[in-house]
Amino acid sequence: MTDEHFLDVKDLRIHFPTDDGLVKSVDGLSFHLERGKTLGIVGESGSGKSVTSLGILGLHKGGHAKISGEIWLDGEELVSASLDHVRSLRGKKMAMIFQDPLSSMHPYYSVGDQIVEAYRVHNKVTKQVARKHAIDMLDRVGIPQPERRFDSYPHEFSGGMRQRAMIAMALVNNPDLLIADEPTTALDVTVQAQILDLMRDLQRDFNAALIIITHDLGVVAELSDDILVMYGGKAIEYGTGADIFERPEHPYTWGLLGSMPRLDREPTERLLPIKGSPPSLINVPSGCAFHPRCAFEPRTHGKGKSEVPELIESEGGHLVRCHLTRDERRAIWETEIKPNLEATL
């Protein structure tokens, strides 16, 4: 592994004690990211993807969560850092774009004022200078007539415009790390395409590291260099976009690909869903968390039920957490999965 990554998360664990038991939302997660690169984190509800992003921003600090592991951002360790210090980094060093801009912006303040506030927290400038900067930002993210729109309130914006304003607010301090949690889920498909284009352009201009968290494999494929697939609080597959989409090795990733109807291929007769539903994080299944839903569990000779598989390198940085051997997985993908995904009517 190269010496130092811009963002390096090592064995991150975020556990929440509840009356019903310990919820292991994130359980031993490691990944890294460089400036100018994009990491996509994919998973279903309860897989721990959003908790991870909030954890990096330090938003679980001071609460009930038990956090361990290391988060290195540009040479600084954040898990052990004080709350005040992490707070001073938020906005300036790292920023977040949330899913629903209507509930993450303050309804009583104008959009412009909220951007100005974010800017003045980190920059000692007059209101006029900050206002000018905020208008520039609104212009950058493609809001028409930014001078006039500066004084509008969030409810006066459409969904796409609000998400643009949200992005302007996140980028106003030129952060090095940008985390987008389901940034386009609440948007219509034509507006989603606009926002994805915008994020791609801005990331290139600002040379920021971007983490995009979503359940939509299409969105991930559009933006990501690397992809991390999460299940039950753990990474189950981690690799480049080509690794995940062209030679996936984990049965869960196969299941996700088989569950999606696709517009770029001839329609298949039937979708190939994963049986059952995502696990409860209080009663995570023994052994491999995916084993109750896995069609290939019988081929692990009982190991699936009893042993937690390790995340092991398959080839060239492509990591997989599965009891099946690499050759078994590749054979299954080539002979049993891939032909079915591409089967035509």
Binding site: T190, Q192, D264
Partner: peptide, 15 residues
């Protein structure tokens, strides 16, 4: 046409 071309495709080849 616009709607169809706006749908993100889960594939890295055609991007």
């Amino acid at each position: 046409n616009a709607l169809l071309s706006a749908v993100p495709i889960p594939d890295v080849k055609g991007r």
